[in-house]
Every structure is written in C-alpha cells, then in structure tokens.
Design a protein around this nucleic acid. Sequence first.
DNA 1: GATGAATGAGTTTTCATTCAT
DNA 2: CATGAATGAAAACTCATTCAT
Lengths: 216, 216, 216, 216
Amino acid sequence: MANAMSRRLDKLDAERQKRLFESAAEEFAAHGFDGASLNRILEKSGMSKSSLYYYFDDKADLFTTMIERSLAVLFKEIGGFDPTALDAATFWYTFEELYRRAITVVDRNAWLVQFGGMFYRLRSDPRQGSATGRLFLAVRKWITLIIERGQALGVVRTDLPQSLLIDSTMSLLESLDRWVVAHWSQLKETEKDAMPQKHIALFRSLISSQPTGGAH
Amino acid sequence: MANAMSRRLDKLDAERQKRLFESAAEEFAAHGFDGASLNRILEKSGMSKSSLYYYFDDKADLFTTMIERSLAVLFKEIGGFDPTALDAATFWYTFEELYRRAITVVDRNAWLVQFGGMFYRLRSDPRQGSATGRLFLAVRKWITLIIERGQALGVVRTDLPQSLLIDSTMSLLESLDRWVVAHWSQLKETEKDAMPQKHIALFRSLISSQPTGGAH
Amino acid sequence: MANAMSRRLDKLDAERQKRLFESAAEEFAAHGFDGASLNRILEKSGMSKSSLYYYFDDKADLFTTMIERSLAVLFKEIGGFDPTALDAATFWYTFEELYRRAITVVDRNAWLVQFGGMFYRLRSDPRQGSATGRLFLAVRKWITLIIERGQALGVVRTDLPQSLLIDSTMSLLESLDRWVVAHWSQLKETEKDAMPQKHIALFRSLISSQPTGGAH
Amino acid sequence: MANAMSRRLDKLDAERQKRLFESAAEEFAAHGFDGASLNRILEKSGMSKSSLYYYFDDKADLFTTMIERSLAVLFKEIGGFDPTALDAATFWYTFEELYRRAITVVDRNAWLVQFGGMFYRLRSDPRQGSATGRLFLAVRKWITLIIERGQALGVVRTDLPQSLLIDSTMSLLESLDRWVVAHWSQLKETEKDAMPQKHIALFRSLISSQPTGGAH
DNA sequence: GATGAATGAGTTTTCATTCAT
DNA sequence: CATGAATGAAAACTCATTCAT
C-alpha cells in the first residue's frame, strides 16, 4: 500500500498537503508520536479523517512519511554527502559547511524546524522493529559511518566504546538542535554566522582525538 | 492532601509498594508521563484502581512522588554535595567520586535504574509550571550552579552561551545514563571500574576550559 | 463546532434522533443535568458513545441543544408573541390563548412533555455563565418583560419587589406545568377545555392588581 | 438500625456533629441528594468515612436524618401547631404569626437556612417509596391538612382540584423561601418586619376564596 | 477520489460502600 | 468506639480505525 515510490499522496493538492504537514509536524513535535492526536491534526488542517486514511495507512504511516520526506528534502537540498570521501584535513570543516547549508535550507522551509522535535522522539518508540524505530536506526547508521570514517582517518577518538561515542554524538546533536530552535529569534546575525564554527567545535571537543586547544 | 511529610503511602505494605513502584517506573520510563497508562500500571502491579487513588491524588501525583523519592534516595545515599565547596584542583575528581557512589547506590536499589528514563522525559512536559516541569527545572538549576562554580574556578569554558553549555551537559548526562543502563549487564568488572574516570573525562572534553590531552 | 445553524445532527436519521431525544429528555427530566447519566441515555437509545460525541461536543451540548430545540419548536408553533403589543383589556386573555395553543403543540410533539422537567432544573446550575444558566436567564428575562408591561398597563400589582413577583410567577408556572403533565391522562375533555381559563385565572389571583372576584 | 428514637448519633460529640451537619447541609443544598458527594462532606467536616458509616446507615440515612432533625427543631421551636384548631377569623393571621416565629428561629440556628434548599429537592427523588420521598410526602400531607381545614372553614377556594391547589401552594412556599434566603442580607429592618404580612397576603391572593381587596 | 458516519476499546477520575482491626 | 484500607462500578470523554457510499 504505502509504497515509498509512487503514492496517492503525490497527487494531493500541494496547498492541502502543506496544511496537513504543518499541522502534523506541530502536533508530533509537541506531543510525540503516541501523544499526538490525529483528531487534533485533522482539526487544525481542515482535512477529513477519511481523506487522511486514503493517503496514509495509519498514524504511523503519516509520521514516518513526514520524517522520510523531511530527511529527503534535507539531503537533497543540503547536497549529497559521501562519508567515504572525507579526509583528515577537511574532516571537521566539511561539517561546518554542511551546517551552514542546513541553516539556509531550514530558513527556506519553515516547517522543517519541527523536524528535530519529531525525530528525536523516535528513540523511545517501544515497538521493536516498528517503522519509526527503523527510521531512527537508519539515521544512527549514518552517524556511525561518519564516526568510523573519522576514526579510520585518525581524527576521532577511539578510547571509548563506539556505541557510547555514537550515542553521545547524537545527544549533542539533539541538544544543539533544540537550543538553536529555541533561541533562533533572539540571535544576532553575527552570532548566527559564528554558529557553524562554534558548534562544530563543540563536537570536536567531545569526540576529536586531538585537543582543539580549548576555549580562549 | 499530598503532604510530602506524612503520607498514607508510607503505611502501604512494603511489598505492594515495591510492586507498584516497579510497575509504574517501568511504564513511565517506557512511555513518558502522558503516554503511560494507569490501567497498565495497575494490571502489572495487581493493585486496584481505587486503591491507587487512595494513596495518590492523581496520575501526576504518582509520577512526581516517584521522582521525588528517587531523588531523595539518590541524594541521601550519595551524600550531600555542596557546589560552593568545589575547588579547581579537585573539581573533576569530585564528580568521579560522585559517579562511583551513584553506581553503588543504584546497584542496591534496582528500581532506581528506571529513574533516568522517567526523569529526562520531564523536559517535554508542556504544562507550564506543572509539578513535573518544576522538578526538571530544579535539577537544571542544580547543574547550572555547578557550571557557574566551574567557570568561576576557571575550569569550565566560558566561550559559549551558558544555556547552551547547560543543555549540552544535561544531554550528555542523559546519553551516558541511557548507555550505562543499556549495556550494564554486558560490562566486565574492569570496564565498570574504569567508567567513572572515563565518563567524567568525556564531560571534561566537552566543557572544560583546558584541553585534556585528548585520547591516546 | 457546535454551530446552531448547520449541524451534523441535522443529518442524523430521524428515527435514531427521535430515540436519542426521547431517552435523553426522560433522563434529564428525571435526574437533572448533573445527575443524568450519558451511559443510561445511550443504553436506552441504543446509540454508541462515540456516535453521541460525533454529534455533540459534550454532555452540556446535548442538553442545551435539546432545550434550544424545544424552545424553538414551542415558539415557532405557538406563534410569535410581542409583549409590547399587550393592552390592558386583553392582557390576561392573550395568555389564555397562548396556553390553548401550547396544549395543542405539545399534544402533537409528545417528547416536548419532558421539556418542563428539564428546563426548571436549569435554575440550580451552579456554573456561573454556563450555557444552561444563560438559557434559564433568557426565559426569566422574557417573563420580566411581560410583568413590566403588565405593570405599565396597570393590570399587574406593584406592591411587591419585582424580583419576588417574577420568582413567584415562574414558580407557579413550573407548578402548573408539572401538575398538567402528571394528571394529563386522567383529565376529561371538558376539564382540559377549561384549563386555560382556570389556570390563567390562578396567575391573575397571584399577581393581578385587581381582585378577580375570587372563587364561587 | 437507624432507629429514630435512640441512636448512636445522639452520643456523638456535639461539636463534631455540628461540623458534620453544616458541611452536609451545605453540600446537599448545593448539589441535591444525588449530586452531593460524601467524600466532599467528609473532607469539609474532617470526619472519617468509617465514622460516618458508624452513625448512619448510608447516604440516604444521613440526608433524611438531617431533614428530620431540621423539621423537629423547626416544629419544636416554632411551637406546636394544630390545624384543627384554626378558625375562619384568625386563619391567615395564624400563619403570619408562624412566619414571624420561623424567622426568629432560623435567625438563631444559622444552618437551618440550608434546610429549604435541601428539602425542595426531595420532590424529584426518583426512587419510589424512598425515605427521602416519604419525607416530602409527609410535609405535603401537612399542607394538605391545612388547606382542607381552610376549605372547611370557607376561607380557601374550592374551585380548583385539591392537588393543584396544594402543589401551587408548596411552589409558592419554595419560591418565597428562596427569595428570602437570597435577599436577606440586603433587606432593611422595616422590610423584614413587613414580610410576614406581605408574604402571607400573597398566599391569600393565590388560594383564598375571598378577594383580598388587591394591592394598593 | 473523497468523505460522513459509526464504533469498540481506551483514557483518568470519583463514587458509595464494606470490612478487618 | 473509631478508622484506615480496599474495592467494583460508574462517571465523562478521546482514541485510532473502518466502511458504505
């Protein structure tokens, strides 16, 4: 039914789709997957319940679809990125660049702001092997690849269990994401410009094999 | 009613209380406050619905009571700890010691393991000024004091907004907590012994004002 | 949602709607708003709980909707009535006529019989400014206008506080209403025909400024 | 169990009894019999649930006991009153006197003010032959005796069905009771003094066989 | 393509009552 | 005498999902 390739969803009027996605993102970000109410989403978006079930299999399908689309947009707009192409000299700088591009993408697609709030909740999905759980694991896998590449290049520390390194990295990612979303409107332009460098430096502090020279 | 000092709860048969607390901790940790189902908790614990309402005002009271008791046990057993007494020379080592003591406490009080899973969910409580929300803020305040003290002593970095520093620290705390809970049974004794030093070193990497010398 | 103009309710199958209204009117009349049990209403009417909530916002919405519809039917069928058009000569007779028309209307709409039993309970609704409370006040206002007009015309006594006059009048109205409902089936046709004149004469005894000549 | 003559209740400490009665009267007056919550009553009065069940059979027993005691106090303090001793010349004046005495009694026993609010609700007790229902009928019987005596003396109208006359009288009684309770604090002394005469005159307007001469 | 209508199972909370001590 | 403790049944309300049209 819910084929990722060709979907009924693609034929849904763009405006209605946008309204639905915005309502749903808001609700999922605010209450998590389980806590979110389809009824509230439908009320906000003005879509009928049966329509939603025409386009989606169920609540989980709506959720994962949104996450997938969000990720797809992010990846496409940020630009393909190949972990195996990283090299020691430019390792950290590459992420600064990614960060910069991410900012401009989200700036243009307001609803993506909710993405983080939705995404990080996936971790706690209790259902083993659920669609939502698998999605989280997919992203985790991606982080794993990067870290392994970093270790192979000698720029990421190897003195800690890999799983711990990955979890800590994702945690810091989430933390920074939340912080940026929460403080965005109060940040000055110069602060915003400095963010990619400063925040990537924070990752570097955490998992780099080399001291960064600390703070000055 | 829900007086913290003297409560009906204190007279509840120890065995039944234990069963209730374990069921509830499991449920809250797995689904968060909103997602937790009283029915499931009662089913697991074998307690009747009306009995639960004899001992607690409502769902929130059950939850906050458990968090409070957990914190109380932790603080009492770990031993008082005064942020203003920290000094530059022993700053990080103090936390290594705390970590060690925490491990032994949790080792003796199995159900406290769920505490983290329950606690970190508090962040997302949407209700402004709710009991649960206030509790989270109380702990956050406590972290704030430590970081401020560390900065005053010159051992904690000052090149980032304080709120970001605090959020990142709590995030790492959560991340390590989860990791330990998840991997505890597979850890060898030597690994366990090394944990306090290694994990505190990770915090040091993240927020110390001095490079730690990296990993070797 | 609960728009008075166009409602889901209007599309509900007439037979089911009738069953629901009869069950609800019976329950509300027997136990008042607070005392009425949705479960009992649903059991009697055979409707499912979720269906009821599809058509109504909540218990109060069901109640007020029924009162409003009752009033609407009554007013429409009895015919508009303008207090300012009353004159001294025909003041009391006008109400005799109204009474007669009311009898025929209720005769044709059996479920309206419960209306009084539901309505008079509104007085005791504790919630300030609740929908039900406002409804009661609306009717009270209407009685007030009539009494003020009667006083202006010199046909209604002015020797008592107005609020007392109004309360007493509504009380008598309620009392007669209850009496008629309770005794209707045992009344002979001749008695029914005499009722409007006799009952309006009772109001006249109570609040008229002129002696009626008493009983003979 | 609940023997009216000798009761455990009589041995209950006077102060605790007063606290209980006040809480209960308030609750019953505010929410009616069905709507009243034993839990709330107990909370207000500080009495334990089991104690209440030691002194009373059940909720209904508490209620009827209170009504009975209220009536007993009223009758005793107002002074015995024998319907058969009424005569035509003093018929109405007798009730003015009763009214006067009732005012002073209630003035001295503040909690009796709630009595009316409790009592009038009895009418709607759905349970056939319930204790509460019987109590209401007992009072109704008493009114009936008075009206029959008045009719025998030729001072009460006979042109209406007796049941209607009785119902209307009780309705007016309730209405005046409510009005007095609601306006008591705003009444001037002269107005209070005139009340018995004015209010009994209202009954006279309603059910007297003779015109009273109307209002001036 | 699209949706109005219907529902069973679930939610948290409160009820009056009983019983062992 | 007194009460702390326990409970089944009921309360109002929301949920995600289905199906006929």
